[in-house]
Lab assay of single mutants.
Amino acid sequence: PPDDERKKAEKAARSGNEEKAREILERLGYSEDEARELAKRLR
């Protein structure tokens, strides 16, 4: 489910793995720019 994926992205971002967070968010349908912004904010 998307919620689980989003949680994974948050966890990745918090542990400093912004790249992985961005990949997950892009898979969820965010654009590259949106995903980058979100990954930064989740950190």
Rank of each mutant, 00 (worst) to 15 (best):
L42V: 06
N17H: 09
L25Q: 02
S15I: 08
E37W: 06
E34T: 05
K8E: 14
K20S: 09
E5T: 10
A21V: 07
R27M: 09
E18L: 15
S15H: 11
L28W: 06
E34G: 03
E34D: 11
E23H: 10
S31G: 08
R36Y: 12
I24P: 01
K20H: 09
G29Q: 00
Y30W: 06
E18Y: 11
E19P: 09
E23L: 09
D3T: 12
L25T: 00
D3L: 13
K11L: 14
K7R: 13
E34I: 06
E34H: 04
A13K: 02
I24F: 05
A35W: 04
R6A: 09
R6L: 15
A9R: 03
S15F: 06
A9W: 02
A21C: 12
D3M: 13
E26K: 12
K8S: 10
K8V: 11
P2E: 14
A35E: 01
R43V: 15
E10Y: 05
R41N: 12
A13D: 06
L38P: 00
E32W: 00
A21H: 03
D33W: 04
L38W: 00
K8R: 12
E32T: 06
K7P: 05
D3P: 12
G16D: 07
E32Q: 07
K20I: 11
R41F: 06
E32F: 03
I24M: 07
K40V: 06
A21K: 01
D3R: 10
D33R: 05
E5W: 13
L28E: 02
P2K: 13
R14F: 05
P1V: 13
N17P: 03
R14W: 04
Y30D: 00
K7W: 08
L42I: 12
S31D: 07
L42M: 15
E23V: 09
I24D: 01
R41Y: 03
K7Y: 07
R27S: 13
E18H: 06
K40G: 11
N17Y: 09
R43K: 12
L28R: 00
E23R: 13
S15N: 13
D4R: 11
L42H: 02
E26S: 06
A39K: 01
L28C: 09
A35R: 00
L28Y: 02
A9Y: 04
E19M: 13
D33H: 08
I24G: 00
R6D: 03
E26A: 05
L25Y: 10
R22E: 02
R43A: 15
R41K: 13
E18F: 11
L38N: 01
Y30R: 02
A39L: 09
R41D: 12
G29F: 00
E34V: 05
S15Y: 03
D3K: 09
E37Q: 09
R14G: 04
D3S: 13
R43H: 15
I24Q: 02
E34A: 09
L28P: 01
G29D: 02
P1D: 15
E19R: 13
E37G: 04
E5Q: 10
S31H: 03
E18M: 15
E10F: 03
R22W: 04
K7L: 11
D4Q: 12
R22Y: 06
K40D: 14
K11H: 15
D33K: 09
L28V: 01
D33A: 14
I24W: 03
P2Q: 13
R22G: 01
S31V: 00
E5Y: 08
R6V: 15
S15W: 06
I24E: 02
K20N: 05
D3G: 13
S15T: 11
A13N: 03
R27I: 07
A35T: 06
S31N: 10
E10Q: 11
E10S: 09
R14D: 05
E18P: 06
G16K: 06
D33E: 13
A12H: 10
A12E: 12
A35Q: 02
E10K: 10
E37I: 08
E37Y: 05
P2S: 11
G29K: 00
K20F: 11
I24N: 01
A35K: 03
E19I: 12
E34S: 04
S31Q: 05
Y30V: 04
E10D: 05
A35P: 00
P1G: 14
P2C: 15
Y30N: 01
E26F: 00
L25W: 06
A21D: 04
R14K: 13
R6S: 07
E19Y: 03
A39P: 00
D3V: 10
K11D: 15
G16Y: 04
P1S: 15
S15V: 09
R22S: 04
E32I: 03
A9M: 04
K7C: 14
L25G: 01
N17T: 05
E5R: 09
E32A: 09
R22D: 00
R43Q: 11
E19W: 04
S15E: 15
E37R: 08
D3Y: 11
E26W: 00
S15D: 14
K11G: 08
L38E: 10
A12Q: 09
R43P: 06
A35H: 01
K11E: 15
S31M: 03
L42R: 01
E32C: 05
L38Q: 03
D3C: 15
A39Q: 01
L25D: 00
E5K: 07
R41G: 04
R43E: 10
G16Q: 05
A35F: 03
R36I: 10
A21L: 12
I24T: 01
S15K: 08
L28I: 08
A35C: 05
K8A: 14
R14S: 07
E26I: 15
K20G: 09
K40H: 14
A39D: 05
K40T: 07
D33Q: 11
I24K: 01
A13P: 03
L28G: 01
I24A: 04
R41E: 12
A13I: 09
E19A: 15
A9C: 08
P1R: 14
L38K: 04
P2H: 14
E18A: 08
K40R: 11
Y30S: 01
A9S: 04
P1K: 14
N17I: 05
L25K: 00
L42S: 04
P1W: 14
A21Q: 04
A9Q: 03
G29A: 00
E26P: 00
E10N: 06
P2V: 14
L25S: 00
R36P: 01
L25F: 14
L38F: 01
N17Q: 12
K7V: 12
A21Y: 11
G29R: 00
A12S: 07
P2I: 14
K20W: 11
K11M: 14
S31E: 05
R22A: 08
G29S: 01
L42E: 04
A35N: 04
R27T: 08
Y30M: 11
E10W: 02
G29P: 00
E37H: 07
D4N: 11
K8W: 10
D33V: 08
R14Y: 05
E32L: 01
N17K: 06
K40L: 02
E26T: 09
L25I: 01
G16A: 04
P1M: 13
E5V: 11
R6K: 10
E32N: 02
P2G: 13
A9P: 06
R43S: 14
D4Y: 12
A13S: 04
A9V: 06
A13M: 06
A13H: 04
R22L: 07
G29E: 01
K7E: 12
E34C: 10
E23T: 09
D4T: 13
E26M: 15
Y30Q: 00
R14I: 11
K40P: 07
E34W: 02
E10R: 12
E37L: 07
Y30A: 05
D4G: 10
E18V: 14
K7F: 08
E5I: 08
A12N: 04
N17V: 03
E23W: 01
E26V: 15
R27L: 11
G29I: 00
L38M: 11
E19Q: 12
A9D: 04
A13F: 03
D3H: 11
A9E: 06
L25R: 02
A39I: 15
P2L: 13
A13Q: 02
K20P: 04
R6P: 05
G16T: 02
K20Y: 13
E23P: 02
G16P: 02
L42N: 01
R41Q: 13
K20D: 06
S31P: 08
A21G: 03
A12D: 03
K8F: 10
R14L: 09
K8Y: 07
R14T: 07
R43G: 13
R22F: 04
R43I: 12
A13G: 04
A39F: 00
S15C: 11
G16R: 05
K8Q: 14
L42Q: 04
G29M: 00
G29L: 00
E37C: 08
S31F: 01
A39M: 03
R14E: 07
R14H: 09
L28M: 14
R14A: 10
L42F: 09
A12R: 05
E32G: 02
E23A: 11
R22V: 15
E23C: 11
P2M: 14
E19L: 11
L28T: 01
E34F: 06
R27E: 06
E37F: 03
